[in-house]
Design a protein around this nucleic acid. Structure first.
Lengths: 146, 146
DNA sequence: AGCCATGGGTTGATGTGTCAACTCGTTGAT
DNA sequence: ATCAACGAGTTGACACATCAACCCATGGCT
């Protein structure tokens, strides 16, 4: 492994671990939602239609099917979502409240630790880097993507 | 949240999730080690001294203490490490074999999906970005760092 | 028609991460 | 010398992720 690849990988790993644990800790402390909860609720809220099929969640979030199934079961038990026949999921009023409250907290944390720290050029560079890596991964996994 | 921050955050999240799940899947399939196992073993092997204190692992990996405790217990049960009195940890022969075998697999995956995809400039830019974000996080957590 | 191959969804077992509460030894102040 | 405070480490409970094994409907194929 080339030394600069190794160095960058180490730095990236450190950012990845610390950044996400910090954001998730803040989110959990102030709203009681996990990252998984947030991702689901955010996706449901963004897709304006009242009915979202399970499979749309799976593709949109790139989750394993069993992970989604377990997560949706837990979230239904907590009253955040409802499952309708036909593998259709929708937000409950309670879920809508929670995601609205959580978004402020989440976006503030993303801005504080991420957006405010990087220049416009750095943001653009990181977006390109991410897209390239994701494209490379998609080559090897033609079945998960479409 | 500024649109470009949001866009970059989304792209970064996608890379983070897909890249690490892919590397961990390959690592687990071909060696039976998890990412956590690998991080511990790698750290132990790199620090040439035969005796590594628990707290060095915690600082080096930026892990929570309970996480480390659980992980070390599980790894001791599998014969990968040994705990000596005084919170001292060392590799077993078995652990040394496993990390040697795993490193090839892990580094190949990092090169394939990460190092080979990015230019030298991109690698340098990502290292800088990571360091800046980590520095920002460290400001808010003066107690975890030294 | 009958068949089976595929993919969506569920479940249970197991491994992993987090939090809170606890023990224990050290340190520092009174 | 006593006591309180702190940090290292452990533990138990719980949430979360992954894997393998299922069920079931759909869509070809013969």
């Amino acid at each position: 492994m080339t030394p600069d690849v190794f160095t960058t990988w180490q730095a990236y790993q450190r950012m990845r671990v610390l950044l996400n644990s910090q954001i998730n800790r803040e989110l959990g402390r102030s709203t009681g939602l996990s990252e998984a909860d947030y991702d689901i609720l955010f996706f449901l809220e963004q897709s304006a239609e009242t009915s979202v099929r399970s499979v749309a969640l799976r593709c949109g979030l790139a989750w394993e099917k069993s992970r989604l199934s377990h997560q949706l079961r837990r979230m239904e038990q907590r009253g955040l979502i409802e499952k309708a026949p036909g593998a259709v999921i929708h937000l409950t009023d309670r879920g809508r409240e929670q995601i609205a409250a959580a978004r402020d907290c989440h976006e503030a944390a993303v801005r504080r630790y991420f957006g405010d720290v990087l220049s416009a050029e750095q943001l653009a560079a990181l977006a390109t880097i991410s897209d390239q890596v994701v494209a490379r991964l998609s080559e090897d996994l033609p079945h998960h993507v479409h």
